[in-house]
Amino acid sequence: MTQAFDPRQTQRSTAWLASAGLRPTRQRIALAELLVGDGENRHVTAESLHAASRAAGEAVSLATVYNTLRAFCEAGLMNEVVVDGSKSYFDTRTDDHPHYYWEDSHSLTDAPAEELSIASLPKVPEGMTVSRVDVVIRLRKA
């Protein structure tokens, strides 16, 4: 049985999809409600979003979750943050900001951007432009 969402969450999620020109399919709306329905930002993995969708009663495959997250990233609704080259997190906050990666819990959180200073970047190869700089600060217990 599918969990009933608050109509405001559905409205917020549908508007989020529409802002990027994405068609509001049932599965996209269900995943968007879990991601932005309450207005809060999220850092999720495909696996954690899949588990949350199943807990909410949505019959969506892990492959669909991956494909939907990629579509959200391509539409500019989310950013993918890769940790260790093997683990991807998807962030609903799309402005430039650094992250903490908590090695003990394998979680990703926002780090205070106002405390980060990048003095310079290497020269960009000809014909290229910087699209984004990802800063991931890895943390473990001292």
Rank of each mutant, 00 (worst) to 15 (best):
Val82Lys: 13
Arg8Tyr: 12
Val83Asn: 08
Asp110Asn: 14
Gly39Pro: 12
Ala15Ile: 02
Leu139Gly: 03
Asn67Cys: 02
Ala30Asp: 13
Met1Cys: 10
His43Ser: 06
Gly57Phe: 01
Pro24Lys: 05
Glu80Asp: 04
Phe90Trp: 15
Arg140Met: 06
Leu139Cys: 07
Val83Lys: 02
Ala75Cys: 04
Asp134Cys: 07
Arg23His: 14
Trp16Cys: 00
Thr45Leu: 00
Asp6Tyr: 05
Thr2Val: 13
Leu62Val: 12
Glu115Arg: 15
Arg138Val: 05
Leu77Arg: 11
Leu139Ser: 08
Arg26Phe: 10
Ala52Val: 01
Val44Gly: 04
Asp134Ile: 10
Leu35Phe: 02
Trp16Leu: 03
Ala18Asp: 15
Thr25Tyr: 05
Met78Pro: 07
Asn41Cys: 09
Pro24Asp: 06
Asp96Phe: 11
Val44Gln: 03
Cys73Thr: 13
Gly39Phe: 09
Met128Cys: 12
Arg12Asp: 08
Ser88Asp: 00
Ala111Thr: 05
Thr25Glu: 12
Glu47Tyr: 09
Asp84Met: 07
His106Gly: 07
Val65Met: 02
Lys123His: 08
Cys73Ile: 08
Ile118Thr: 07
Val65His: 01
Val133Leu: 10
Val130Thr: 14
Ala20Cys: 11
Ala18Pro: 03
Ala4Gln: 15
Leu49Cys: 01
Asp104Glu: 15
Asp6Ala: 10
Pro7Ile: 07
Arg138Gln: 08
Met128Gln: 15
Ser61Leu: 08
Ser13Pro: 08
Val44Tyr: 01
Ala46Glu: 06
Asp38Ser: 04
Met128Thr: 07
Asp95Trp: 10
Asp96Pro: 08
Ser107Tyr: 01
Arg132Met: 05
Pro112Val: 10
Ala55Val: 00
Val36Met: 09
Ala55Gly: 09
Glu47Gly: 08
Val81Arg: 14
Lys87Ala: 13
Val36Pro: 00
Asp95Glu: 15
Tyr89Gln: 01
Val82Arg: 15
His50Asn: 11
Asp6Trp: 05
Thr129Asn: 09
Glu33Lys: 09
Thr92Ala: 00
Val82Ser: 15
Glu33Trp: 06
Ala52Asp: 15
Ala119Tyr: 02
Glu126Cys: 03
Arg93Ser: 11
Glu115Pro: 05
Ser117Leu: 14
Ser105Pro: 07
Glu115Cys: 02
Glu47Leu: 13
Gly76Met: 04
Ala52Leu: 14
Cys73Pro: 00
Arg93Asn: 11
Trp102Glu: 11
Thr45Gly: 06
Val65Glu: 00
Val60Lys: 04
Gly76Val: 04
Gly127Ala: 01
Ser105Cys: 05
Val130Leu: 11
Arg140Asn: 06
Ala30Gln: 07
Gln11Val: 09
